[in-house]
């Protein structure tokens, strides 16, 4: 096992976690808005938020590259400061966040839609304002789905390849991730290295899906009387 493979593994866990945290808060709020309210441009917004799911990841990566390149809308020449994202670990996190956002938003939206808004009305009549109602009633009632959203977002981030390789590259010890390390190992014919990474990927993936299966079980059936 080479030193850079271990670094890639450790970094992947860190970056995927960061990306998940980054996506979760705005993603959950957006998901709640999409689940509860009717507003102008809702369909367009929801479509845009879903795009990374259907576009080739390399297309998303290329789009980010165009946005962030020095003459792009978010580049040094336009903003006047250099965000210094491309080809750094920040680019990995950004790619992971963007690519996992649709999954997070969709899963969270479904879990919010599963909470009958009448429970929220009930909480309001018991003296709780809208904010307290959201945090003390809506969130806990949607928690199973939200945890599933976190897990799916995290695993999608861990597996991110296409967008990452375009904006962050595949620099061992700096921007290499589990996904790009498997690619490098396979290309270089280092089968033992690739096998090891494959097992890790299998374990993480199995654990994630299994957990969401577990979470999506119906709660104890209400005593029918």
């Amino acid at each position: 096992m080479t030193e850079s493979t271990l670094v890639a593994l450790r970094s992947t866990l860190l970056w995927a976690s960061l990306a998940t945290v980054l996506v979760m808060l705005p993603g959950a709020l957006l998901a709640y808005a999409l689940a509860r309210f009717e507003f102008f441009g809702k369909r367009v917004l929801s479509t845009v938020a879903g795009l990374p799911l259907v576009l080739p990841p390399t297309a998303v990566g290329y789009l980010l590259l165009r946005l962030l390149s020095s003459d792009g809308p978010l580049g040094r020449e336009t903003l006047g400061i250099d965000l210094d994202i491309l080809l750094t670990w920040k680019a990995v996190v950004l790619a992971c966040a963007v690519m996992s956002a649709p999954l997070v938003i969709r899963t969270a939206r479904v879990s919010f839609e599963g909470v009958d808004p009448r429970y929220e009305g009930m909480a309001r009549t018991l003296g709780h304002g809208p904010v307290a109602t959201f945090f003390q009633y809506t969130l806990p009632m949607a928690s199973r789905g939200l945890i599933a959203a976190v897990i799916l977002g995290f695993t999608r981030a861990m597996g991110e390849f296409g967008a990452t390789i375009i904006i962050a590259g595949n620099i061992p010890g700096r921007t290499q991730t589990l996904a790009t390390a498997i690619f490098s190992a396979q290309q270089a014919g280092q089968d033992a290295e690739a096998d090891f990474l494959l097992v890790i990927a299998l374990l993480v993936g199995f654990g994630a899906i299994f957990t969401t299966e577990y979470l999506s079980r119906k709660p104890i059936a209400a005593a029918a009387r």
């Binding site: 009958d116 009448r118 429970y119 009305g121 009930m122 909480a123 309001r124 009549t125 018991l126 003296g127 709780h128 304002g129 809208p130 009633y137 806990p140 009632m141 928690s143 709660p219």
Partner: peptide, 20 residues
């Protein structure tokens, strides 16, 4: 006046007990 400031006790037809 929003519901939380009206001070009413509401019993809906289907109870709506908080499942959590």
């Amino acid at each position: 006046v929003p519901p939380e400031a009206r001070g009413v006790g509401y019993l809906p037809q289907d109870s709506l007990l908080f499942p959590h």
